[in-house]
């Protein structure tokens, strides 16, 4: 009697475990083994024979000479893209800058870039504070810049927006000693908030500390390239 009961329990266990194990096998087979088998099966390949006779063939000689010329021409063209003049690279993920002169890195350090904040009002107005990425160039250089506060600067603080040229829009000494414009209202400038350097906190401009700003201002000229990524 006990034996019969034991058999029944064993059968129930087997009937549950075997299908479960089979399902697990099917799952692993389909998900992992089959894609692995795809990579094991050989595909028709070109066999490299490096036949010495071929190297003497005029067609081979002509083709390799043509390829060599093409590669030289293309390499030269590609190298010419990197300017020998000064340029700056800005990494907005790590908030770092790299200043180059004669294709050599001459200075690097921390900066602050856009905070990726979207400021929204109840009236459906919105602004996204991010630094644009891509290729730009220095379009203007300014000493002792004055910040003309845009609408969002007032909205952000819960202040009423003043008229266009209202004196309350102008702030002196907050952008450092120098500023360089890269277009569309974006500037590379100084900051009072040096403790935030290396962090994404700006409204889209690039902030630097005083020493770095001065070095960059003195190295870059109007037309110098600014690469932001």
């Amino acid at each position: 009697m006990i034996n019969l009961k034991e058999n029944k329990v064993l059968r129930i266990i087997l009937r549950t475990l075997v299908p479960l194990a089979a399902l697990l096998f099917v799952f692993i087979f389909v998900i992992y083994i089959v894609p692995g088998l795809q990579e094991m099966k050989g595909v028709r390949k070109t066999v490299l024979t490096n036949d010495p006779e071929l190297k003497k063939d005029p067609v081979y000689k002509k083709q390799t000479a043509q390829l060599t010329r093409d590669i030289q021409r293309m390499s030269k063209k590609y190298a010419s893209f990197t300017s020998g003049q000064s340029y700056i690279v800005i990494n907005t993920t790590d908030n770092r800058f790299f200043l180059y002169k004669n294709k050599k890195l001459i200075r690097e350090g921390f900066c602050s870039s856009g905070s990726y904040t979207m400021l929204k009002t109840e009236g459906e107005r919105k602004w996204i504070f991010k630094t644009p990425k891509g290729k730009y160039w220095i379009q203007g250089k300014i000493t002792s810049p004055v910040w003309r506060r845009p609408d969002w600067a007032f909205v952000e603080e819960g202040l009423p927006i003043p008229p266009e040229n209202d004196p309350s829009r102008y702030e002196y000494g907050v952008l450092g000693d120098y500023a360089m414009s890269i277009g569309d209202g974006y500037l590379i400038h100084g900051t009072l908030y040096k403790r935030f350097l290396g962090m994404p906190v700006t409204h889209g401009c690039v902030r630097l500390n005083d020493e770095d700003l001065e070095a960059i201002y003195n190295t870059l000229s109007i037309g110098s390239k600014v690469y932001i990524f």
């Binding site: 070109t46 066999v47 490299l48 490096n50 036949d51 071929l54 081979y60 083709q63």
Partner: peptide, 8 residues
């Protein structure tokens, strides 16, 4: 035949 040459 050119594609059988590693240099090419």
């Amino acid at each position: 035949r050119l594609f059988t040459d590693s240099a090419y």
